[in-house]
């Protein structure tokens, strides 16, 4: 377990209960504690409806947990912070803004000067391989391209923490693999701390330093699997025996 003191984002005994429209309580999270060490890549995996998205919303400061506390950089987190970036399951792009304007949005909201904005957007356009598409509208992009725009937007203000909710969920297997590798390449150029929700076990093992496994609802973390592989990681890792063993171990923990 990572020491709480060194963690940049730290959730302490989080409980969260929704109230359904008929007044019935729906316990979504039960006693979730986790700590993210700076610069690490953590994957979160668990059955559908176990509360992963809810946990990410709480960690982003969008939702106040029923009980428990989230600390960011040692301070209690009570509302969304610019230093924490959340990339949603859907791309959530504004259809009336071009690719450039969508990526630029967080900087615009933070009031960053024009020249710096231009530099940073240009940089992200190039690392997400979107150069030449800056003046296109989201409706003119493929699903994978739109997702890359969302990732670029999530990275643009160089967040300390990057929370990703199944960012590749809408993609086919092949694009997914490519995007995963691309994400690792982009991540290597930043010092961000990443927590990524995924449904794919092999994706989790391939990308992360450790994998957290959640139980069915009400979700809590039932297993923590450290991933020992060095970086950079290549696609050949997928056939490595240690890799398949780890994947099997995680699969067993889920069921």
């Amino acid at each position: 377990m990572i020491q709480t003191q060194t963690a940049i984002l730290h959730a302490d005994h989080i409980h969260h209960t929704f109230t359904a429209a008929n007044g019935q309580p729906i316990p979504a999270l039960e006693d979730v504690s986790l700590a993210l060490a700076p610069g690490t890549f953590t994957a979160l995996i668990g059955p559908s409806g176990c509360g992963k998205s809810t946990l990410l919303r709480i960690l982003a400061g969008l939702v106040k947990p029923t009980s428990g506390q989230v600390q960011f950089g040692g301070l209690a987190l009570d509302r969304p912070q610019r230093r924490i970036s959340l990339i949603f399951q859907k791309d959530n792009l504004m259809p009336w803004r071009t690719v450039y304007e969508n990526i630029e949005l967080p900087l615009q909201l933070a009031g960053v000067a024009k020249t710096e904005k231009e530099q940073r957007v240009a940089h992200l356009l190039s690392i997400t391989d979107l150069l030449g598409f800056e003046n296109h509208y989201p409706a003119e992009l493929s699903g994978g391209m739109a997702q890359r725009v969302a990732i670029a937007r999530g990275l643009i203000n160089e967040p300390d923490v990057l929370l990703m909710d199944e960012p590749f969920g809408a993609l086919d297997a092949l694009t997914r693999e490519q995007m995963g590798q691309e994400l690792l390449r982009i991540w290597a150029t930043t010092q961000a701390t990443v927590l990524m929700v995924t449904h794919s076990i092999s994706e989790a093992v391939f990308l992360a330093d450790r994998v957290l496994v959640m139980s069915p609802r009400p979700g809590h973390i039932i297993r923590e699997v450290p991933i020992p592989f060095t970086r950079p990681r290549g696609i050949e890792l997928l056939t490595d025996t240690t890799f398949t063993q780890l994947a099997a171990q995680i699969r067993a923990a889920i069921h």
Binding site: L62, R82, L86, K90, N92, L105
Partner: peptide
């Protein structure tokens, strides 16, 4: 779109923004 609203909030946008 409520999703875009949430995205704006996640980016710490003010009511005016």
């Amino acid at each position: 779109s409520p999703n875009l609203r949430e995205m704006m909030r996640a980016n710490a946008a003010s009511r005016w923004q």
